[in-house]
Amino acid sequence: MTRHEGRSRTGRGPRAGALLAAAALVMGMTAVAAPPGTAAAAPTFTRAQPFRPADTGARITAETRLGPQEVDITIESPSLGRSVKTRILLPRDWRADATATWPVLYAYHGGQDDYTSWPRNTDIEGWAAGYDAIVVMPEAADGAYADWYNYGFRGTPKWETFHTKEVVQLVERNYHAGTARAAIGDSAGGQGAITYAAKYPGMFRHVASLSGVLWLRAPGMPSLIMATNALNGQDPIAIYGFLVLNAANWRAHDPYELAPRLAGTKVFFSSGTTGNPGPGDPDAPPWDVGLFGEQAVGATNLAFRDRLDRLGVPYTADLYGDGRHNWPAWTRVASRVWPDLMASIGAREL
């Protein structure tokens, strides 16, 4: 990993003719136990009070225990106009009747995926079990981590409001999550993590993006984004609006444009840049969309790095050159950055 004074290997721009193919990847297609001899006590879920709602009226309508430290909640969300799920990992000393709070990490998933993405693809349960912290994995669907513009009419879905207001308030009011927060995300979730940290300074102490698009309006990128939305069966204009006519709304969601607001937040970002496969990647031909897609993403990360350099905003970057847009690369990086995220929120190692 390189800090802001270092320079990372640079890849070339995306190959001609690959834009639509890479679109399926660019905005997010996502292709410790207790110490020896120590019994891990299961958290106590018995509640003396009913679930408390969020300020918007969002409420928890169901709680399903999946294991001693793992629970799914169903959230009825006015911001989304429907109910969705969120997965929560609880520390082993957590109790429903506790008066203490715990530091919390929010893990956002990529596009064409759901709230189970992180546990399906990584050992996030094992990473979480090594620290006295809560981990929250909210649903994001293909919502682009934004309150949709909807041709100026706004309205649902409001994914940004769901994540930054409803989920945060519900876990703080019902699961003793504290205000010492960090966030990590892969692909579209990485873009979302950086965007939220910039739009709401102070919300997160530390934020990490794994192959997120960090310059929405980079040359060729709007076409990729809108093509991705169309391939997902959505109106490609509904999320941010028209590129020129609604340029202000695009800028309002663009990490590159929001970069000055990251001063004071610890920032980490990573991506491949070359369009070549990396360690652990599956065998793929040179024209594989995961390779083209990561090269396009990497170009936005390089531009974002240069933008932060000009602004004098500190960061840590791991622009690792070879690597596909997939979980082998993200798991490798996430496992390395996890202890730093935990330290930033004051989570005690167990």
Rank of each mutant, 00 (worst) to 15 (best):
R7M: 11
R7E: 15
P14V: 11
A16F: 15
A18F: 10
A18T: 07
L19F: 13
A21N: 07
A22I: 02
A22P: 01
A24V: 14
L25M: 15
M27G: 01
T30G: 09
T30K: 05
A31H: 08
A33K: 13
A33M: 08
P35S: 04
P36W: 08
T38Q: 11
A39S: 15
A39T: 06
A40W: 11
A40L: 12
A41K: 14
T46Q: 03
R52A: 10
A58M: 03
A58S: 14
E63N: 08
T64Y: 12
P68G: 10
P68L: 15
Q69P: 00
E70I: 09
V71P: 01
I73W: 13
I75G: 11
I75H: 15
S77Q: 05
S79K: 09
L80M: 01
G81T: 02
R82S: 13
S83D: 03
K85M: 08
K85W: 06
T86G: 03
L89G: 03
R92V: 02
D97W: 06
A100C: 06
P103F: 00
Q112I: 13
D113L: 08
W118Y: 11
R120P: 01
N121F: 10
T122Y: 02
D123Q: 11
W127P: 05
A129I: 01
P138S: 03
E139D: 15
E139R: 14
D142H: 07
D142I: 06
Y145F: 14
A146H: 14
D147G: 10
W148N: 08
Y151H: 13
G155L: 06
G155N: 14
E166L: 09
V168K: 07
N174D: 05
H176Y: 02
H176M: 00
G178F: 00
G185F: 04
D186A: 14
D186S: 12
S187M: 03
S187E: 14
S187W: 09
A188N: 11
G190H: 05
Y196E: 11
Y196F: 15
K199A: 04
V207L: 00
A208K: 01
S211Y: 01
G212L: 06
G212F: 05
L214M: 08
R217I: 01
P219C: 08
S223W: 14
A227W: 01
A230Y: 05
Y240L: 15
F242M: 15
L243Y: 12
A247C: 10
W250P: 04
R251S: 02
A252Y: 10
H253A: 13
H253V: 02
L258A: 02
P260S: 09
R261D: 12
F269Q: 08
F269M: 04
T273P: 04
G275T: 03
P277I: 11
G280N: 10
D283A: 08
A284Y: 09
W287P: 03
D288M: 09
E294T: 02
A296Y: 06
A296M: 04
V297E: 02
D306K: 13
D306Q: 13
R307V: 02
D309I: 09
Y315A: 03
A317C: 14
D322Y: 01
N326C: 13
W327V: 12
A329D: 15
W330E: 00
T331V: 13
V333T: 14
W338L: 00
P339E: 00
P339R: 00
D340A: 07
R348C: 00
